[in-house]
Design a protein around this nucleic acid. Sequence first.
DNA 1: CATCTGACGACCG
DNA 2: GCGGTCGCCAGAT
Length: 111
Amino acid sequence: MSWEAVYRWVQQIPRGRVVTYGQLARALRLRGGARTAGRALAACPRGRGIPWQRVVGAEGKLLLREPLAQLQRRLLEAEGVHFAGDRVDLTRHRWRPDRARRRRRSRGAVL
DNA sequence: CATCTGACGACCG
DNA sequence: GCGGTCGCCAGAT
């Protein structure tokens, strides 16, 4: 399986926002679930500007091993992501892909 | 071919 | 909240 679709999806995550491995897996219907999402990121090619640091565990924990976790935390904090202890504050930073992005604009949104 | 090993997460005691 | 189990699956040994 090629991870290209995963990388393209991750590319869309805005600065300062994060998603979880499970979220990513469900969004792309990855066969192996969240773990497969993790594998894809582990194989993430460097130098292509893929914001890999914006993918975290289901409860906001950073699941990488040192020293990578430390780098991830630093990168996230640098873009304004707030941590509560060792977790990203998901209620504040979780990104949910907007359907309007994938489909065409829905007019007259109820607001 | 057998096993082990992950950048997971739901579930249970 | 914490630790153990289990399903998942591609690569490495």
